[in-house]
Computed example of a mutant assay.
Amino acid sequence: MKRFLNMTIATPEGVIFEGEVENAEFPGTLGAFTLLPLHAALISSLTGGQIVYVKDGKPEKVAIKGGFVEVKQDIVSVCVEQ
């Protein structure tokens, strides 16, 4: 059985993505990192760059200026500025 991350990406203007992803890469302020299903709980600040996530086997990109990400039990909440 394949596991997924349930990810929501929100900006001050509203939600720009919500759905299941296979993995996601983030531009953390201390360096880039990748989240996979069953990842340990995490809160991190984000710097300018791109969030890259894989949905249905295809990579998608979202350009950001900065923000925060929280992971808890395969739920990924992302708040960013674009």
Results as ranks from 00 to 15, higher is better:
residue 38 L to D: 08
residue 38 L to M: 06
residue 38 L to K: 02
residue 38 L to F: 02
residue 39 H to N: 08
residue 39 H to V: 00
residue 40 A to H: 01
residue 40 A to I: 04
residue 40 A to C: 03
residue 41 A to W: 00
residue 41 A to P: 01
residue 41 A to K: 02
residue 41 A to Y: 00
residue 42 L to S: 00
residue 42 L to V: 00
residue 42 L to G: 04
residue 43 I to R: 04
residue 43 I to L: 10
residue 43 I to T: 02
residue 43 I to E: 04
residue 44 S to W: 10
residue 44 S to G: 05
residue 44 S to Y: 04
residue 44 S to I: 09
residue 45 S to F: 11
residue 45 S to H: 10
residue 45 S to E: 14
residue 45 S to M: 13
residue 45 S to I: 11
residue 46 L to H: 10
residue 46 L to M: 10
residue 46 L to K: 08
residue 46 L to F: 10
residue 47 T to R: 15
residue 47 T to K: 14
residue 47 T to G: 12
residue 48 G to P: 04
residue 48 G to E: 13
residue 49 G to C: 07
residue 49 G to R: 03
residue 50 Q to Y: 15
residue 50 Q to E: 15
residue 50 Q to L: 14
residue 50 Q to F: 14
residue 51 I to L: 14
residue 51 I to A: 08
residue 51 I to G: 05
residue 52 V to Y: 12
residue 52 V to N: 11
residue 52 V to C: 08
residue 52 V to K: 15
residue 53 Y to Q: 06
residue 53 Y to R: 08
residue 53 Y to K: 10
residue 53 Y to F: 15
residue 53 Y to M: 05
residue 53 Y to V: 10
residue 54 V to I: 15
residue 54 V to H: 11
residue 54 V to M: 13
residue 54 V to A: 06
residue 54 V to R: 15
residue 55 K to Y: 15
residue 55 K to S: 15
residue 55 K to T: 15
residue 55 K to Q: 15
residue 56 D to E: 13
residue 56 D to N: 13
residue 57 G to T: 07
residue 57 G to S: 09
residue 57 G to K: 09
residue 57 G to D: 12
residue 58 K to V: 14
residue 58 K to T: 10
residue 58 K to M: 14
residue 59 P to R: 11
residue 60 E to T: 05
residue 61 K to E: 10
residue 61 K to T: 12
residue 62 V to D: 02
residue 62 V to M: 03
residue 62 V to R: 07
residue 62 V to Y: 03
residue 62 V to F: 02
residue 63 A to N: 07
residue 63 A to G: 01
residue 63 A to I: 06
residue 64 I to F: 08
residue 64 I to P: 09
residue 64 I to R: 09
residue 65 K to V: 04
residue 65 K to L: 10
residue 65 K to M: 09
residue 65 K to Q: 13
residue 65 K to S: 12
residue 66 G to S: 11
residue 66 G to M: 06
residue 66 G to T: 09
residue 67 G to W: 07
residue 67 G to R: 07
residue 68 F to Q: 06
residue 68 F to H: 09
residue 68 F to L: 04
residue 69 V to T: 03
residue 69 V to G: 01
residue 69 V to M: 03
residue 70 E to P: 00
residue 70 E to G: 04
residue 70 E to Y: 00
residue 70 E to Q: 05
residue 70 E to A: 07
residue 71 V to F: 03
residue 71 V to A: 13
residue 71 V to I: 11
residue 71 V to P: 02
residue 71 V to E: 13
residue 71 V to Q: 10
residue 71 V to H: 08
residue 72 K to F: 05
residue 72 K to V: 04
residue 72 K to C: 00
residue 72 K to R: 07
residue 72 K to L: 04
residue 72 K to E: 04
residue 72 K to I: 06
residue 72 K to G: 01
residue 73 Q to L: 10
residue 73 Q to D: 12
residue 73 Q to K: 07
residue 73 Q to C: 02
residue 73 Q to H: 09
residue 73 Q to V: 01
residue 73 Q to W: 00
residue 74 D to K: 01
residue 74 D to T: 02
residue 74 D to N: 13
residue 74 D to R: 07
residue 74 D to M: 03
residue 75 I to F: 05
residue 75 I to E: 12
residue 76 V to E: 08
residue 76 V to K: 05
residue 77 S to A: 11
residue 77 S to T: 15
residue 78 V to E: 10
residue 78 V to R: 01
residue 78 V to I: 14
residue 78 V to P: 02
